[in-house]
């Protein structure tokens, strides 16, 4: 995968409520082409809601999303998601799951098979092409999730806590892989997480949301190139401390709230 995405995204005054439960309050945000933005915030702050609004999976109560810039000609699905719970079809093999987004759009069977093979190699799944999701570990399942997403050459990638269903060790391993994949593909990416470490590892900018109703509390830019970031880097440690001090009180207060949304 070479040349990155030239698509930018713009949230304009987005508010959302589920019934009487106000989740998001007047959020405006610009995301540059090829930029990786992490959305962080306490649980229940509406991060995932905002991500679904970004890609048109949820109609916001107020406001809208604008997409700017023509997607590349080989883009089969401009706005593509990677889900927290993987959302794999259990009756399809790994190859079959990756194929789903290509079917109907890539008519040439050989080209499709070739693309699937490319994605299998890219994500280290080559030996698992014919395995069913049930046979795979959580980490392997999410590799299928990212392979399926990258296979359609998206203009924008939306990742909804893609690592939070995994154990800590798998998460560390996969985070490195994802950081490299995202950096290399240079796709405009919105990455939702509650894990500051993940955000610091792979985002150009980190958007901190307040607790419900979610508002943008701060935006922190990380200048260090994604490829050059290492665990324990002094700049990252300082940034993490700063972010945590911002979120800490919010998270503590959010923890004591009754969750009406559930």
């Amino acid at each position: 995968m070479s040349s990155g995405s030239s698509t930018s995204l713009k949230l304009e005054h987005v508010s959302h409520h589920f019934g009487s439960n106000f989740v998001l309050d007047d959020i405006s945000l610009d995301i540059a082409p090829g930029e990786v933005v992490a959305l962080v915030g306490p649980s229940g702050c509406g991060k995932s809601t905002l991500l679904n609004i970004f890609g048109g999976l949820l109609q916001p109560t107020k406001g809208h999303v604008l997409m700017h810039g023509e997607p590349r000609s080989d883009c089969l699905n401009p706005l593509t998601y990677v889900f927290q719970d993987f959302a794999l079809l259990p009756w399809r093999t790994v190859a079959g799951n990756i194929s789903l987004g290509l079917e109907g759009k890539m008519r040439d069977e050989d080209a499709r098979r070739e693309r699937i093979g490319e994605m299998l190699r890219l994500t280290g799944l080559a030996d698992f092409a014919n395995a069913y999701p049930k046979q795979l570990s959580g980490g392997m399942r999410q590799r299928v999730g990212i392979a399926r997403a990258l296979a359609v050459r998206p203009a924008c990638l939306f990742m909804d806590e893609p690592l939070s269903a995994l154990d800590a060790q798998t998460r560390t391993l996969l985070l490195e892989e994802f950081a490299m994949l995202i950096a290399r593909a240079a796709i405009t990416t919105v990455y939702v997480t509650h894990n500051l470490n993940e955000a610091l590892r792979l985002a150009h900018r980190i958007v901190v949301l307040s607790r419900r109703p979610g508002r943008i509390k701060a935006i922190v830019g990380i200048d260090l190139p994604i490829e050059a970031r290492r665990e324990g880097d002094p700049d990252l440690v300082v940034a993490e401390k700063r972010l945590w001090s911002m979120i800490r009180d919010e998270a503590s207060a959010a923890d004591r709230e009754l969750d009406d949304a559930r």
Binding site: T80, F83, A87
Partner: peptide
């Protein structure tokens, strides 16, 4: 599962 349906919609099926 509704999330599978939403996944399908996210791929514009």
């Amino acid at each position: 599962q509704r999330n599978l349906v939403m996944m399908g919609q996210s791929f514009n099926l």
